[in-house]
Design a protein around this nucleic acid. Sequence first.
DNA 1: TCATTAAGTCAAATGTATTGACTTAATACT
DNA 2: AGTATTAAGTCAATACATTTGACTTAATGA
Lengths: 403, 403
Amino acid sequence: MNDSRPIRAKSGTNHEGTSAHNRRVMIDALRINGALSRADLARATRLTKQTVSNIIEELERDGLVSSQEAVRKGRGQPSTPYGLVPEGAFAIGLQIDRHVTRAVAVDLVGSVLVRDEAGLPPGGPFNGTKVILDLVAGVRSKLAGIVQQSEKRLVGLGAAMPGPFGVAGSGDDPWMMEAWQKFPLLETLAAGTGLDVGLQNDAAAAATAERMVGAAHGLDHAVCLFVGYGIGAGLILNGELYRGANGNAGEIGMALLFADGKSTPLEHRASLASLYQHLSIDPADPDLYARINELALRGDHSIHAWVEAAAADLRWSIHLLETLFDPQTVILCGSAPEALVSRLFAAIGPLLPSIAERRGRTLPRLQPGIADPWSVALGAAAGPISRAFDPRFAAILKDSLQS
Amino acid sequence: MNDSRPIRAKSGTNHEGTSAHNRRVMIDALRINGALSRADLARATRLTKQTVSNIIEELERDGLVSSQEAVRKGRGQPSTPYGLVPEGAFAIGLQIDRHVTRAVAVDLVGSVLVRDEAGLPPGGPFNGTKVILDLVAGVRSKLAGIVQQSEKRLVGLGAAMPGPFGVAGSGDDPWMMEAWQKFPLLETLAAGTGLDVGLQNDAAAAATAERMVGAAHGLDHAVCLFVGYGIGAGLILNGELYRGANGNAGEIGMALLFADGKSTPLEHRASLASLYQHLSIDPADPDLYARINELALRGDHSIHAWVEAAAADLRWSIHLLETLFDPQTVILCGSAPEALVSRLFAAIGPLLPSIAERRGRTLPRLQPGIADPWSVALGAAAGPISRAFDPRFAAILKDSLQS
DNA sequence: TCATTAAGTCAAATGTATTGACTTAATACT
DNA sequence: AGTATTAAGTCAATACATTTGACTTAATGA
């Protein structure tokens, strides 16, 4: 009798959705092209000059854009370019890794203003929570010391940690599974900071960073192959980060390779974890990166062998990502010793033939990305900035309008 | 001096974009849930009753929805459900395959009203164009004979053929590469029919069909693994078909498997092409499907061996798709003899452990999909319907508003 | 000097969605 | 049987963001 299965539907939109979208489109245009005049913006966005004027005026009042010196270019009234104001918004990014946690504060254009890190005690989230919250609080107060009004312009806290999330059993990496998975991280961080909190995996964070300030800047279709303790792919599809149904899209580390008659996850063959095992190094060693950097620079034989093997696997991975996602470009990024990443990059070429080889290509099939230890924290911070300011379908819908 | 690099920006939107989106949201809600009252629609879409009334009135005038008998359910005025009118819109779908071309006419809800096929002469598109245009014209006129005003309600022609598109060289399938790739198919079809024409690959078409009338109905994240002459994946991501930067996303047939010390494209191991080779059958045989169906039903040993081997490869493919796309479900569909597909489906289980194994799953990880020979043509027809009526980000933007 | 070109503003108009009061029509309670 | 309650749906006025077209401003070029 009770026929009350829930009705599923997408949300509608209204004037505010329109306006929110147009604001985001303006900000996006200024981010991609640099400063533009109202007339340029009107042409590029296909809105009228008047609409652009209204929105720019509003954005200027909000401190997100500011006018620059007028530019004379031929006949007609000189144009007044408007550019993004870096201090218009800030976000905190937080990387939670196995033995360490890092936090950064970035501004609207993705510049890192504050960075700090702390060791994480063993024993999982219950012991680590205080360290993390203290680290965030420290970065936040340092930011407040550098810029005025930073607290009012803080749009959120982005957290990044290795995925996958919410998967039943099967963890052969006990770190992730047992301790953190059941811990209400988002709630704890939200309660402890009072900020809007988002969570993504390392690779997604790296992709978010590449899109804001790296090789994927202004691209609508890019895949970031991220090499860290594990390996994953961050996906920019249709101009937005793609998360999948459960936030686990791109977990290429779990893809199975067949070799020597048995199947092995890519993660066991091409990741820092596999390198540590190959070299019999303790991953908790605090000088880890320095040691590996040195070995890589000096052309150590054992590292060389790993690099060659890993590069072959990455070559296959890149081919696979090109085949399945058809991106404009693939970006190799990571959180790993820099010399190691550049050796890997060099060892990968030439790429396997794929559908990415097409007439009229302009971008390289593979590009180097950000690969310093702070890239994940940066990407974590880029998350809230992107959610708040980038054009996205979801931002138009009534169920996501805040004011 | 001439600083005129083009300015890149996304398009803005306006009232008409808002309205277009809300119309689409209504239609989508009715498609997913069946007939709904204005009040139900208002709650589900978060629009006001008044707005819903206005839009429904307009949709009813346009012949896209119609009222049904009032329903008494407890206190209050009885509600009047509105449902989609199947005859509200039509589209023609066209499959272009190696030796055959098929066309169907479908209505707004995806029912096939007319179907017809024709053999394609060898020699590529120049010889085939007339056959194809005649086939489309025939289906179109049969449709006009069945329903009134069908021409006025025809939203477009969707074509589907094997991918990939626009790839340089490397064709080991000479059929696709040499003949069709350079032929201006879209322009020829548009000129020959006067309709809006779209093009997608077989797998994408299959996914579009599954979303409209199949196992992906109402899902926002689904992957259709399509087995035909080749093999591909059709991707429904965020509720829309994902095409990639060049329309080639999902070409999993080109993914490389390592076996016996060498790498082989999946397509060479798990596709009808590989079966034909395995059985030494001529793919041009007109009774092909019937013969294979018979062999499959009688449990032929040679087919059994192929099924087992292909199933293992599909098992790996499904694991890979789950890993990279994190969909709600994977659907096995195809354009292949039905008995073969069901044997394959049965032989695939049990699936490999993956991130898809999570607490609270409701949908099966793998579901059977549409696998009759008409599925690609159906999906091709579903393309224009979807483009015209489903909620999509692009539909909001000014640069896509027609009227 | 003056026509031309382009940026940007002003004020009124337009198009959708929203608001709040109202009507209609059923069930539930007394 | 009568009345209160609940929910669907309508009406008319309002609010909000974009659009339109005329106008102003400020430069170049002939």
